[in-house]
Design a protein around this nucleic acid. Structure first.
Length: 620
DNA sequence: GCCGTTTTCGGCCCGACTGTTTTCAGTCG
């Protein structure tokens, strides 16, 4: 049994070790690319690799040729890859960690390994402490000081940040940069603009000229919260900024989500040592579009765009799209060549004969084949919240307050879905309490006008796929949201059966946070998602993107696959307290990354359409 | 190690910053 994650992991290891042996960099690149491709697949490769046409089947995937196909087949058949074993034998096990130190690339690691016998982090520290590292070529006092600082930083900054932690920091910095005199534009770019679920660092882009350039760099490096200036140049600065994180119910707040805070790992801020790296680039206003594109990435998307430019006799960089001139190696911008396009992203895409591509789709997952700009879902399209909790279980609001808050957001419908009886720690409702709660919801309906309040429940899906209430009781509800909360490390086969059984239940409307994963913290279930999607399509069950930034479950690649399978989706905030409504944008970003449109999201439907779907499903 | 509407071999994106250097190698994004 080899999951895609395992296959990708092994290939990534091969790439890393190859780098350390000084192998051809394109061979390294090929393994990295294959790992990346496999990681974002939703269909499992295992069955293909064990099937009759394994080699052909695998080679149909981009980036996988005969050699890598054979490695995958070998792994699935024997549980190991000979090449990897050999590399592991040849490269000391501690070196990959040494290479993870900022400033230590493959060349330098090789140098300290071969010339000074360093085989792990302790060895590196040793030659730094005894000063012998200075005897190596290109190793001066300053380089060693930086290395020391990097090692110290590494201990406290390993790990990435959740979207919800990074976004407020980025927004604060952008607002600050916009206030600098002479700054014409400021925005965050990078993986944050693409809406990725986790962020390594924050990229800030500023358009300015003349005195404003240095003013921007100065303001950036001295802004509140800067703990350390890593680099400071005219056009580029890097700093580490203090973090404040509120993980809400996932970080030990009193309103624990079914006790999940109790076994949760340290918060992002804690793991990151309380800081995040923020990079600033200052560019001329006339080059805003090309710079924004460049720094938004993804890297793979950019490579693809550059290739496309070259195919058209053009060359693309962060300064613009230029005519290619093979007679010189000097860059077009330094020769004063006029750009074909540079001011806006739109004009550059147009010059490359492409529609503008929304940032969330720029992952080299086929977005350059789009014939027009897709109209993806937006926060303003959402008209209903279908997953929320009140004081009856572990929420902080009464039914009336919840409904008023939802109404204030412009929603036409709110579903009250408190926890079911087995969620004892979340004060889950017994059958009798649920009966009474349904009555209370009906009473609130009469009080709060201008919004439909649905009586629902977030019903636990047990490990065997059965539900936490009797069918007779479920039949009294307007809406049933079914979720896995416990037994989240069961094997993929059982997880698949579990979810399929829940989906097939005639009373279930929405499968909520289907895998139970927590971003950067917990893997959650790893069922055969293709089967889950096929079943959801068959039974008309909506698959939820839980909008809390620590869940984002379904994840982006699942969203894409679910849409391909013909499913409808839901984006719910899983509201426990008033602020949770604000997480909607993270769910929407994730939906957009998967190509979600408002037509395919039940929360965007008009009241009558939504009601008809709920009713039809309920009697189905 | 992958890939091919000019290729089954010879390509494979591009620039800033840093530190150690006198013209550049390495790292990073």
């Amino acid at each position: 049994m080899s999951t895609n994650a395992e296959i990708a992991g092994r290939l990534g290891q091969i790439a890393e070790l190859l780098e350390l042996t000084g192998a051809d960099k394109f061979r390294v690149l090929a393994n990295q690319k294959a790992a990346r491709v496999i990681e974002s697949l939703t269909a499992e490769l295992g069955p293909i690799a064990r099937g009759p046409d394994a080699r052909t089947g695998l080679m149909a995937l981009e980036g996988i040729g005969p050699k890598i196909a054979d490695k995958i087949i070998e792994l699935c058949a024997t549980g190991r890859i000979k090449e990897l074993e050999e590399l592991k034998a040849a490269v000391p096990a501690g070196l990959p960690e040494v290479m993870s130190i900022p400033g230590m690339g493959p060349k330098t690691v090789r140098l300290v390994w071969q010339e000074a016998g360093v085989t792990d982090l302790a060895g590196l520290k040793r030659i730094i402490d005894d000063g012998s590292i200075l005897n190596l070529p290109r190793m001066g006092a300053k380089a060693v000081e930086k290395l020391k600082a990097s090692i110290a930083m590494l201990a406290e900054s390993r790990g990435r940040l959740g979207l919800g932690v990074a976004m407020p920091v980025a927004e604060r910095v952008v607002a600050l940069m916009k206030d600098v005199k002479g700054v014409e534009q400021a925005a965050f770019a990078g993986s944050l603009r693409r809406g990725k679920e986790s962020i390594g660092d924050i990229d800030i882009l500023v358009a300015a000229k003349g005195a404003a350039v240095t003013a921007a760099a100065e303001a950036f490096c001295t802004m509140p919260g800067v703990r350390h200036v890593i680099a400071r140049g005219e056009a580029k600065c890097s700093v580490r900024v203090s973090l404040e994180e509120d993980g809400g119910r996932f970080s030990g707040a009193p309103t624990g989500d079914a006790g999940e805070a109790a076994n949760a790992a340290p918060t992002d801020a804690e793991r990151a040592g309380g800081t995040v790296q923020v990079d600033l680039r200052v560019i001329e206003p006339a080059r805003w579009g090309s710079a924004l594109m460049y720094f938004t990435g993804s890297k793979e998307h950019n490579v693809r765009l550059r290739q496309r430019a070259l195919d058209r006799g053009l060359t693309l960089n962060e300064y613009g799209l230029f005519p290619e001139d093979k007679s010189t190696s000097e860059s077009p911008q330094s020769r004063g060549v006029k750009a074909v396009a540079s001011k806006t992203e739109e004009e550059i895409f147009k010059a490359l004969e492409l529609p503008w591509v929304p940032p969330e789709l720029r992952e080299d997952r086929g977005e350059l084949k789009l014939e027009s700009t897709p109209v993806l879902i937006e926060v303003a399209d959402i008209r209903a919240e279908l997953h929320s909790h009140t004081t009856a279980s572990d929420g902080t609001m009464s039914i009336e307050e919840l409904a008023e808050r939802a109404k204030a957001r412009g929603f036409h419908t709110i579903a009250v879905t408190d926890h079911s009886k087995s969620q004892g720690i979340a004060n889950g409702l017994s059958a009798a309490r649920l009966e009474a709660h349904i009555e209370a919801i009906h009473a609130a309906r009469a009080k709060v006008k201008g919004i439909t309040i649905l009586a629902g429940s977030e019903v636990d899906i047990f490990a065997d796929g059965s539900l936490d209430y009797e069918d007779k009781l479920l039949a009294k509800l307007d809406l049933v949201v079914a979720s896995p909360h416990a037994a989240l490390s069961q094997d993929p086969e059982r997880a698949t059966e579990r979810l399929l059984k829940a989906i097939a239940h005639p009373r279930v409307h929405i499968l909520s946070h289907p895998t139970g994963r927590l971003v950067l913290r917990r893997r959650g279930l790893e069922p055969d998602m293709a089967k889950v999607f096929a079943a959801a399509k068959e039974h008309g069950v909506a698959l939820e993107i839980n909008a809390h930034w620590m869940r984002l479950d379904l994840r982006d690649t699942h969203v894409h696959a679910a849409l391909e399978a013909g499913c409808v989706l839901a984006i719910n905030c899983d509201v426990h307290s008033p602020g949770d409504f604000d997480n909607l944008r993270f769910g929407v970003l994730t939906g957009r990354r998967g190509g979600l449109t408002k037509e395919r999201c039940v929360n965007c439907w008009a009241a009558e359409e939504l009601r008809a779907w709920i009713k039809g499903k309920g009697h189905g």
